[in-house]
Amino acid sequence: MDEMDRSILAVLEQHGRISNSELADRVGLSPSPCLRRVRRLEDEGVIRGYRAVIDPAATGRGLRVFAGVRLIRHTRPDVAAFERGITRLPAVVACHHITGNFDYLLQVEVADLPAYEDFHAHQLATLPGVATVTSYVTMKTLTADPT
Rank of each mutant, 00 (worst) to 15 (best):
V46K: 06
A80F: 03
A10F: 07
L105A: 09
V65P: 00
E22N: 09
A121W: 07
A91H: 06
A57W: 04
G16L: 07
F82K: 02
M1D: 10
V11D: 03
Q14F: 04
R51G: 15
V93N: 05
V130P: 04
R37Y: 04
T59H: 11
K140G: 00
R36V: 12
P90N: 02
H74G: 05
P128R: 08
T147Q: 12
D25E: 15
R48L: 10
E13C: 11
A125W: 08
M4C: 09
D5C: 05
L124W: 05
G68R: 05
H120F: 14
G68I: 00
V27L: 07
L23I: 07
R76P: 02
M4P: 02
I18M: 11
D5E: 09
I8H: 03
T132S: 14
A58Q: 12
T147H: 13
H96D: 12
L89N: 02
A131D: 14
M139W: 11
A24R: 03
E13D: 13
V65R: 07
A125V: 09
R51Q: 14
E44F: 01
S30I: 03
L12M: 10
P146I: 01
V38R: 01
R64G: 02
H97A: 15
A115I: 03
H122M: 05
G16Q: 08
L41E: 01
S7G: 14
T99R: 09
R37C: 05
F102G: 00
T147A: 13
E109R: 10
T59A: 12
F82I: 00
G62F: 00
P146W: 06
S135C: 08
A144T: 13
A58P: 00
L113H: 12
D103I: 04
A67E: 10
A58L: 14
P56Q: 02
V92L: 07
F82Q: 01
R51Y: 12
L127M: 13
Y116P: 00
F82V: 00
L124I: 08
R84I: 00
G49H: 01
R39H: 09
F119C: 01
R26I: 06
A144W: 06
S21F: 09
P146S: 08
I72Q: 14
H15A: 14
V93G: 00
N101K: 14
T87E: 13
N101F: 13
R17T: 15
L63M: 10
R61L: 10
T132D: 14
D112T: 09
V137G: 05
R51H: 12
F102H: 11
L105M: 15
S7V: 05
